[in-house]
Design a protein around this nucleic acid. Structure first.
Lengths: 226, 226
DNA sequence: ACCCATATAATTGTCTACAATAATGCTCTC
DNA sequence: GAGAGCATTATTGTAGACAATTATATGGGT
């Protein structure tokens, strides 16, 4: 007797997010409501909620009376996102160094440990979830709803950008750099922690192809232009 | 024969936003769906959409199965918002100096002129809309959906913060400082434009009561604590 | 008099049926 | 055969009815 378990809006968001991050969903494809509803076996209303949440996170664009499409972030968008991330994460680390408890540090270290494990076993899905989760955890510990929400947004957007613009197949945002940041925070060395964070973000950005070179795209006009 | 004109979701958002900015809606009050639906004479479904939009902009908090309440931003929240604003607006101005057309400058100057007019005639509602609108216009001209959306969010939050923490009755964000910024952009003097913008934001922030002094609040527990 | 359980009312959450809109393919005309 | 207009189909948008949840009021027990 297996009870029919219903999937929540949040779970739909996460599944779509992961599909985009893992490049199974390409930019430009339309996410039709009924299609998703049947895939997840939920009502169309719930799918709609998930879609507006995904739009808020910058993963899809909703065109009125047309539908929802996976976003195609431009190179400039990517640079803007990283610019804002540097500022926001700098602030997060700053505030985290001011006040952090032993329990918080334990949570951070445990998280990094999980990341290491996922990396060793090459579990792609977990690696994606955890590497974003680390940055989110930092914001969560700070305790500011605003910073947390902003980070959520930025990480979602970064996932999309990474999916579109990363050249090699290795996933960035490795656990080692995270570990260093945690230890700097543990020592209360704000200056060092901030420096490490900025370096980390620059490293992530540097692994992307953000040159203006034309890339394969679903945009017919762009693809067929000479 | 007046046709019954229906109010859109976006208009509901704006009306609520202005009510909050003008202090007619105090932090903590509940926005009941049916109540709003009858006020605006629309379906409850549309009100719900407006509420999730307001939540995204950080103006209301939605507690599941409880309802939507006007947010009560903390002093730390306020500081975080201004911190992020400084970074984002810096970026906006930076990009605007790189490339701006004659038409864009005209739009900016016209906007500032409207601000002046509203200030002279002491039209509170217009002053609020236009002073936020100036910053939004900058982001719009840059042409980045990401920066535009982020600014939208930040301005909405700033409105709430200003409503809660401003001490005098004068509305900040005056048109003179805006005008100076526009002229710096017109000259393509990025450095000066950025400096003026940062000064402007600091000025706005400085007119707020962001000391840790306890303030009157709707939170009974906090108000009655000794 | 106070506390807890229960019943009632108020409020939010969800689903389904229907309406509006936009894209597609067809036909008729030139 | 090409193109415009029209009909069809696919898809999204909206509203209203019902379900689930939470807050409030009531009454009985201690």
């Amino acid at each position: 007797m297996t009870e029919r378990i219903e999937i929540s809006t949040q779970q739909i968001v996460e599944r779509v997010w992961l599909s985009i991050a893992e490049r199974r969903l390409r930019p430009g494809v339309q996410l039709k409501e009924e299609q998703l509803a049947s895939i997840f076996d939920v009502s169309r209303a719930r799918v709609r909620q998930a879609l507006v949440a995904l739009e808020r996170d910058g993963l899809v664009t909703i065109i009125p009376n047309r539908g929802a499409f996976v976003c195609q972030p431009s190179v400039d968008d990517a640079k803007d996102v990283f610019h804002v991330r540097r500022c926001v994460e700098r602030r997060v680390v700053e505030r985290l160094c001011e006040a952090n408890s032993k329990a918080d540090l334990t949570r951070l270290r445990n998280h990094v440990a999980k990341e290491r494990l996922a990396n060793e076993k090459d579990m792609t899905t977990d690696i994606i979830k955890l590497s974003g989760g680390f940055h989110l955890l930092l914001a969560e510990i700070v305790g500011s709803d605003f910073l947390f929400g902003t980070m959520r947004d930025l990480i979602a957007r970064t996932s999309l950008i990474t999916a579109v613009y990363r050249n090699n197949n290795r996933f960035n945002c490795g656990p080692d750099e995270h570990a260093e940041i945690v230890e700097a925070i543990a020592k209360g060395d704000a200056e060092k922690a901030i420096r490490l964070m900025e370096h980390h973000l620059e490293h992530v950005e540097s692994e992307l192809d953000l040159n203006e070179i034309r890339r394969p795209s679903n945009d017919l006009r762009a693809a067929l232009a000479f």
